[in-house]
Write a protein that binds this DNA or RNA. Structure first.
Lengths: 160, 160
DNA sequence: TAATTATGGTTGCATAACAAGACCAATAAT
DNA sequence: ATTATTGGTCTTGTTATGCAACCATAATTA
């Protein structure tokens, strides 16, 4: 009767959710992108319980999404920062932010704006598109079994 | 002692998570993209408990992410399908899928492949980029208070 | 030097979320 | 007329989360 695991579902979405799909983890990662790097930072910004934060930080370390490093400022404090694997979650978080901007807060009421430090241009809305930058609507897309598909996945998409 | 709510955090990521941030919701939405539209479909594909599925479908209806419609095949069954608001979650799910493809299953072992029905081109990796299609790394990005920022948000990004 | 604060936790207990199976009513198929 | 399918509800047990108390170490202050 324990929680159902998603990592056996032969799906990258399910596998990702198994790692970061609980209520708190993605907010901890968000905070890391916003610049938080100590236990106290995360606590202050999120209002998360101590034991839950302890658990989430450990899981993120185990998953290789965060890593510990020594603070440079004379105090040898151990701080947290994103790894490459963690930084690669950025498009996911930005997709989430843009969806919330549009459907929850609404245009003109965005709590946080994403800007480029190296360009004067605006950040583009994230879209699913072809290599030739052709935007694709959901109806134009198909999901088919990939090279890592198991029997169940193949059957599922076969009978459609 | 009830669960902490995220919709007061003045953040579109947190707000989105309040709607779809539990263990199951995004998998239900994924299944809708894959073509599921009945209670039984979702059950079969996900192995989710009946009471949990009932709850999630109702929440998704309340949120306007799914809607009910009458089946056209003589039987007047009530089925579920994505609304525009729901379809707009596609970039989020594709980001998640691509992250899992890269960091969990690995290149060459993707369980599911996303293809275009209207073009022979490959689907592009989702990136954060400028309007001029310049890809931006996390270090090139800045988060600043937006027009909907409250006092807390402004203070937070001020002292950085 | 002694006392105090900051930091980063751990532990125990109460409530909320989730899983599993029994049950049930309305159709649809045989 | 009977059975199977569909789409649920309800009960019970387990896991996840929240909260407060406690604790150890290091840095700061008196």
């Amino acid at each position: 009767m324990s929680r159902k695991r998603f990592d056996t579902l032969n799906c990258s979405i399910a596998g990702t959710l198994e790692l970061v799909g609980d209520w708190w983890t993605l907010l901890v990662v968000r905070d890391a992108f916003f610049g938080a790097n100590s236990f106290t930072d995360f606590r202050k910004n999120l209002g998360i319980s101590r034991n839950i934060l302890t658990d989430r930080l450990q899981r993120l370390l185990d998953a290789g999404i965060l890593e510990k490093f020594q603070s440079s400022d004379t105090s040898k404090r151990e701080l947290y920062r994103l790894t490459t694997k963690g930084k690669d979650l950025l498009p996911l978080l930005v997709s989430m932010m843009q969806w919330g901007d549009r459907w929850i807060n609404g245009p003109g009421h965005e709590p946080v704006t994403l800007v480029s430090r190296t360009s004067a241009e605006q950040i583009r809305q994230i879209r699913v598109e072809t290599e030739g930058h052709e935007s694709l609507m959901p109806e134009q897309l198909g999901f088919i079994p990939g090279p890592g598909a198991d029997q169940t996945t193949r059957q599922r998409f076969a009978r459609k």
